[in-house]
Design a binder for these strands. Structure first.
Length: 468
RNA sequence: CGGGCUGUGGCGCAGUUUGGUUAGCGCGCUUGACUGGGGGUCAAGAGGUCGGAGGUUCAAAUCCUCUCAGCCCGACCA
């Protein structure tokens, strides 16, 4: 029986589809104040998985976590000219506290280069104090005129790393290490999202940076999403905040700093990169529930068997959930787990158990197979691996198909409508207005070998796309 | 901040043009029964200051004035 679709089909209205998925998969709600977001338990569980994976990678590079204040004296922002100019339009400013007007307004952090710079200056005296590698997990506020859940909210959660180095080369190397070993690796191997990694043009650079590098992903609707950035800040903030040290020869030198971050925006990217008309599709590596054991009917001891099966899977290292809510219909529950993107379902009822088997369904392809209970744990483990890699393959194939080499502006406009136009940088360098008219932007630049461009030279390739 | 639109049970909407008696519908929710291998069926229920304020009128969801909020499209952004 053909039922009305549970969520709006992607092809009909992609933004609506996105909202439907967030609601039906119980990921997030709009908060009461404009632009704010309530992350629901299931959505937050996914975020916690992201945090765990990113945090481990950050720590592997030697950085340590710390915490800096939410409120920043307004004067701090003003110390770096480009920085304050870039951020002032989206600042939330506290002017009153304790019932009195404050002598100096406090900015709610939009990012923490300034406070952290102030403290780095205190902590760094000697070359022996470098590199100083810090990270913090925090919320930040950027006043948004057009918010969209996860993709662009006034308050969002993120990780911001801030480092100080003795040399420009060391800072540059570290910013690249974060870009590749933390962000790119996480996005590809955990989120199963292939990314185009490159250099931002000066127009798109972070306010106050000398170089911004980015991981750009392609969503199912052909629009690009900036998933993470890593910045070389040169000596801009070090000079503004006096981050200086004595080198081996006793000469005072100014440090070189970096900053880098990924945010809850990745949640939106995850949804839009893998989701289909049946809802979310989560890669097992980031799925809070990797496998749900769905009890069909509790007869002939089926309930106890199902619990044992779930327990066995848990022992085998699978993040498993037992769904024995037999008072709700099978179809409803199956649909619910499908909407939530759980990679693998194990369906068991009296019939299967009598034959010592279970029906196993993978979410990405919706294919079913019958598996003997004796080999279930191994089969589920195999399937989780298969789902992880096939989601990545699928996303990569779509990205590759949607990436078109072109050589002139018309080609850029045509290809940019549905994906990435890859074009020699000089072709679009001075075409900002023309691109904007087509809602296109240069996402990043790559060098001839496909690596991150080291400058904006004539031999670099520009990736142009519509973007979130 | 410019242009367009919308506010009616939790969600989605009808009703407004042409004022009229208990403001409807779908989904969801509650209770019960029968069910059960892809949003099951039936029955009985709960739930609404019609965004807010003021006005016109015998009578306002409906007409008038003001106001607030949200959405979409543009310029800015992780």
């Amino acid at each position: 029986m053909a039922k009305a679709p549970i969520i709006t089909p992607q092809a009909q209205d992609f933004p609506r589809w996105y909202q439907d998925v967030l609601a039906k998969a119980e990921l997030a709600d709009n908060g009461p104040a404009r632009g704010t977001m309530v992350i629901r338990p299931y959505g937050y569980a996914i975020w916690e998985r992201m945090v765990a994976e990113v945090d481990a990678r950050i720590k592997a590079t030697g950085a340590e976590n710390a915490y800096f204040p939410l409120f920043i004296p307004e004067s701090y922002l003003q110390r770096e000219a480009e920085h304050v100019q870039g951020f002032s339009p989206e600042l939330a400013v506290v002017t009153h506290g304790g019932g009195k007007e404050l002598e100096e307004p406090l900015v709610v952090r939009p990012t923490s280069e300034t406070v952290i710079g102030e403290f780095m200056a205190k902590w760094v005296q000697s070359h022996r104090d470098l590199p100083l590698l810090l990270n913090q997990w925090a919320n930040v506020v950027r006043w948004e005129l057009r918010p969209r859940l996860f993709l662009r909210t006034t308050e969002f959660l993120w990780q911001e790393g801030h480092t100080a180095h003795a040399t420009e080369a060391d800072a540059a190397a570290y910013a690249r290490r974060i870009l590749h070993d933390v962000y790119e690796d996480f996005m590809v191997s955990v989120l199963a999202i292939p990314v185009v990694v490159g250099r931002k043009t000066s127009d798109e650079r972070f306010a106050g940076a000398t170089n911004t590098m980015t991981c750009e992903a392609l969503m199912a609707d052909g629009k690009a999403l900036q998933m993470g950035t890593s910045h070389e800040l040169g000596q801009n903030f070090a000079r503004a905040f006096g981050i200086a040290f004595q080198d081996e020869s006793g000469t005072e030198q100014t440090a070189w700093t970096t900053s880098w971050g990924v945010s809850t925006r990745m949640m939106g990217g995850l949804v839009m990169a893998h989701g289909d008309d049946a809802g979310l599709r989560l890669p097992p590596n980031v799925a809070p529930i990797q496998c749900v054991v769905l009890l069909i009917r509790d007869e002939s001891g089926a309930g106890e068997r199902a619990a044992l099966i779930a327990e066995a899977l848990r022992t085998a290292g699978v993040r498993v959930r037992l769904d024995d809510r037999v008072d709700q219909s099978f179809g409803r529950r199956a649909t619910e787990w499908e909407l939530k993107g759980v990679p693998v379902r194990v369906e068991v009822g009296p019939r299967d158990l009598a034959e010592e088997q279970a029906v196993v369904v993978r979410r990405d392809t919706n294919t079913k197979s019958t598996v003997p209970l004796a080999g279930l744990a191994a089969a589920v483990a195999d399937l989780l691996g298969a789902v992880q890699s096939s989601l990545l393959d699928e996303a990569r194939a779509r990205r590759d198909t949607a990436t078109v080499d072109v050589s002139d502006l018309d080609g850029v406009v045509a290809a940019g409508r549905s994906g990435f136009a890859r074009v020699p940088w000089p072709v679009v360098r001075d075409e900002g207005a023309a691109l904007r008219a087509e809602a296109l932007t240069v996402r990043c630049l790559q060098s001839v070998d496909g690596g991150v461009a080291s400058d904006e030279g004539d031999d670099t390739a520009a990736y142009v796309a519509r973007a979130y």
